[in-house]
């Protein structure tokens, strides 16, 4: 994205990074998208509860600043690989919620024509190479995409999102090592929400901070408060600059929290109500960003209301689009297995 003008940046000299770096319109757009992610997932959850969506889903409610902050410095043709908790990444990278809803409803107008669902949501046109049902599965793929970028000299950077659970998969370690020895333009983003399903990072992971593992692969390891948009965006900005300059990968640990359970089967027996309540009331990323925007004069209550209304409308329209879209023909079940078939 483009920088704010010099006069404007001077007047914001003491503000946090994003308020110096981006225009008011851009920052309001970020708030819009954070709401869009939140309401999309609430809408998807409601549709699931009403039986309109089957299967399962993994909600990232509470992690919106992380997705938006990381994607903020990315260009449209930069690429990401995402996770089973990937709705936010998909929207942050530019996807349309109506086609995401259509995918969740299993319709032909969905991003994967109803073949992938929530766990494989992708938008290749906007650089999202896909969510992934396998923990850590997307990490080596991101390194391969970065190898392509380097070999074809496209100047693209690739972001690999994964959770704290993935940092104990072999794929994580193999991929970070290769990215480092080949100095590839890739950014590893560990969204540490404290739990791999029910197992806390304290019980699963030998290091206190996952970013410490960067030292083993000679790359910068950066810890950010994943619920503060500006902190995340600043770290991403630096990592993207480093990657584009050919200096190699960065590991960013974005410490955050998911308000909802792991998936629809979660009974929340591994964390306390007090803990969840604390994160929801005191550290909600949208509330925090909204307060800053208001405090620094980038938006007023009327502006916030307008954003909420517009998001509500986009969500309602998206669900209607999904409902009205056609289902795939069962005779086409074998399509897309091989390239020549369809």
């Amino acid at each position: 994205m483009t920088r704010a003008s010099k006069a404007v940046t001077d007047s914001r000299a003491n503000l946090p990074f994003v308020y110096r770096q981006y225009s008011a319109a851009q920052l309001r757009e970020v708030l819009y998208k954070m709401y869009l992610i939140r309401r999309f997932e609430e809408g998807a959850e409601e549709c699931y509860t009403r039986g309109l969506i089957h299967g399962t889903m993994h909600l990232s409610i509470g992690q919106e600043a992380s997705a938006m902050g990381i994607c903020m410095p990315l260009a449209q043709d930069d690429q990401i690989t995402s996770t089973h908790r990937g709705h936010g990444h998909c929207i942050a990278k530019g996807a349309e919620v109506k086609r995401m809803f259509a995918e969740f409803f299993g319709k032909t107008t969905g991003y994967c024509k109803g073949r992938g669902g929530s766990m494989h949501i992708a938008d290749v046109g906007k650089g999202n190479l896909g969510a992934n049902g396998i923990v850590g599965g997307g990490i080596p793929i991101a390194v391969g995409a970065a190898l392509s970028a380097k070999m074809m000299k496209t100047g693209k950077v690739v972001v690999s999102f994964f959770g704290d659970g993935a940092n104990n998969e072999g794929a994580f370690h193999e991929a970070l090592n290769m990215a480092a020895i080949w100095k590839l333009p890739v950014i590893f983003v560990c969204e540490n929400n404290g739990y791999g399903m029910s197992t806390s990072t304290a019980r699963s992971t030998a290091v206190k901070n996952i970013a410490e593992r960067a030292a083993a692969y000679s790359m910068p390891g950066v810890i950010v408060n994943g619920n503060i948009f500006s902190e995340v965006a600043e770290a991403s900005h630096q990592a993207v600059a480093r990657a584009r300059a050919g200096e190699g990968p960065t590991l960013i640990e974005s410490k955050t929290y998911r308000h909802r359970g792991h998936s629809k089967s979660d009974r929340n027996r591994y964390r306390t109500k007090e803990e969840i309540e604390d994160w929801m009331s005191n550290r909600d990323p949208i509330t925090l960003f909204e307060s800053e925007l208001r405090e620094f004069g980038f938006i007023d209550n009327k502006g916030i209301e307008a954003i909420r209304d517009a998001v509500a409308q986009e969500i309602a329209d998206g669900i209607e689009f999904a409902k009205a879209s056609p289902s795939p023909d069962v005779r086409d079940t074998g399509n897309y297995v091989y390239t020549e078939q369809a």
């Binding site: 080596p140 370690h173 193999e174 090592n177």
Partner: peptide, 27 residues
């Protein structure tokens, strides 16, 4: 650059090849 020795990392290496193929190369 076109005949690349990988570390002894079969899972990661295969994944890198998959990612490269997905994004326009022919590994």
């Amino acid at each position: 650059e076109r005949v690349i020795d990988t570390p002894i990392s079969e899972l990661g290496g295969a994944g890198v090849a998959v990612g490269a193929a997905l994004t326009g190369m022919r590994p």
